[in-house]
Simulated assay, not measured.
Amino acid sequence: MKKKLYQTYRSMTRWVKRQIRNPRKRLVLEAVAVAAIIIAIISLVTSGKKVNTEGIKEGVSYIKSLEKKDTSEIEQEIKEIKRAERKAALESGEINVWAQFNDSVILGDSRAVGFEVFDCVDDSRVFADAGATIRKIPEYIDGIKAVNPSSIILCFGINDMNIGFWKTCEEYITEYDQMIQQLQEALPDATVYVNSIIPAT
């Protein structure tokens, strides 16, 4: 009797191994196993046994609360977290200085183009053209809004000085202020940094 049971067990084991070795049959076995698990779960839920739904209710409630939240508020929270992480990583030496520009955009002339050409900053964050002046800024606004940076860095001035659009420094400053105002209206949460004009040598 024991011998017969052992032989039956051995033949069943061999059969299962053969099935597992065959990819097509193994797929069928896996499908049957998954179906059995699903049926067991469904029967457990419908059998009248109480299933703890507190965690599910909390999760649904949390998702609904997020739906009501203003996305700009959440974006600002994310930016603050990123800023703190970058500061800590820079102080510990984990990241280099160029990594600090991953939430900034750079606008400007050929000096700014250099940030992209030399792979210092990702090209999606550089809005610049050789020969550009501050009058180019409005053309970049839609692209900058799509990136939604925390910082906007302006590198203009060298071309502006000799192009003849402005008769006095005061006229230039007034127009520059207007351009900065346009940027601030389009991206009120971003900080605008104005680089000084490099002195001629």
Results as ranks from 00 to 15, higher is better:
Gln100Leu: 15
Thr46Cys: 10
Leu90Glu: 03
Gln76Val: 10
Ile106Cys: 00
Gly55Leu: 11
Ala40Gln: 06
Ile41Gln: 03
Lys82Cys: 10
Val60Gln: 05
Ala99Ile: 06
Val97Met: 09
Asn96Pro: 00
Ala40Tyr: 07
Glu67Tyr: 07
Lys69Met: 14
Lys79Ile: 13
Arg83Ala: 13
Ile74Phe: 02
Glu94His: 04
Val51Thr: 09
Lys57Phe: 10
Asp103Glu: 13
Glu94Asp: 15
Ala31Pro: 00
Glu54His: 06
Ile81Pro: 04
Ile74Asn: 04
Val51Gly: 04
Leu90Lys: 11
Ser92Ala: 14
Phe101Asp: 08
Glu54Gln: 09
Ser72Leu: 12
Ala88Gln: 11
Lys50Ile: 03
Arg83Pro: 03
Gly55Ala: 14
Ile95Leu: 04
Gln100Arg: 08
Val60Cys: 05
Val32Phe: 08
Thr71Val: 15
Trp98Val: 14
Ser72Asp: 12
Leu66Ile: 11
Ser65His: 03
Glu77Phe: 04
Ser104Lys: 06
Ile37Gln: 06
Leu90Trp: 05
Ile41Gly: 03
Ser110Ile: 06
Val34Ile: 12
Gly108Leu: 00
Ile95Arg: 01
Ala35Cys: 02
Val105Thr: 00
Ser72Gln: 09
Ala84Trp: 02
Ala89Tyr: 03
Lys50Ser: 07
Ile56Met: 08
Gly59His: 03
Ile56Pro: 01
Asp103Tyr: 11
Ile78Tyr: 01
Asn102Gln: 14
Ala35Asn: 07
Gly55Phe: 08
Ile39Gly: 05
Ile41Glu: 03
Lys49Asp: 07
Ala35Thr: 04
Glu30Ala: 14
Ile42Ser: 00
Ile39Asn: 02
Ala84Asp: 13
Val32Thr: 10
Gly59Asn: 11
Gly93Lys: 05
Ser110Glu: 15
Ile56Gln: 01
Ile56Thr: 13
Lys79His: 12
Gly48His: 02
Gly108Asn: 01
Ile63Trp: 00
